[in-house]
Amino acid sequence: MDYIQSNKEAWEEAFEERSVDWGADIITRLNVEKFPFMDKNFIETLSKLDMNGKTIAQFCCNNGRELMSLMKFGFKSGIGFDIAENQVSFANDIAKRANINCRFIATDILKIEAAYYDSFDVIVITIGALCWFRDLGPFFKMVAKCLKADGSVFIHEMHPVTNMLGAPGEDGYDEAAPNRLVNSYFSKVWKENKGIHYITGKSYKSKTFTSFSHSLENILNAIIESGLSIRKIREFDYDIADGMFSALNNKGVPLSLILHASKS
């Protein structure tokens, strides 16, 4: 089985194992909060654009909560793509109940249908998307294909500096010294069977997740080779990875970033 199919099965298993409250608060929070589930700096970045009447997509959209939150900017329509069929079904149900003009489509990102090419003014990619692709080249080529001629992609991800840090539970991680480097900055393959904690709230013997750490060189060059132009990189000193590196928050360590690239 290739790693993408294996990851699909592991993600669908994670959704089946989800905690009872996973996703239960989406509609409530969408009703009472301005941009729930979203990072304030990511919202600040996006708010500089005029979104009124524009179209948005999210690649690797999970249960859809982020895309539904971003629809508050006034996008005309939104489409979320994710490989896990049960997550997508859940997201479509929530969008229908919340009366939000979003659709969610279950697909391998690398196989998004041509019908969606040249379709979006904005594509967003948030934490924990890029790591599921061994080669970011085809991934960003699909981003470029799906963007309209003057479209933009906004990426909110872990900073590649986190490639070098240990996470709790990992070999070499020292709770007393979370600033110790235990891994290479450069590319590395990870195989894990500990499940997805932020969805399930527990550790369990899961199907195999295969992920890849990417350097900034990997990310930038894949974007550039897809034909997109790098516009801006903002770096931040706080963790966005479910607390994995939060012991280093506000200590001068780049833990997350926002990257803007555009087609024109």
Binding site: V161, M164, L165, A177, N179, R180, L181, E235, D237, L248, K251, G252, V253, P254
Partner: peptide, 11 residues
């Protein structure tokens, strides 16, 4: 050789 993050990237 052991490495640590001790500096302030945002300085």
């Amino acid at each position: 050789r052991k490495y640590k993050i001790t500096g302030d990237y945002f300085d």
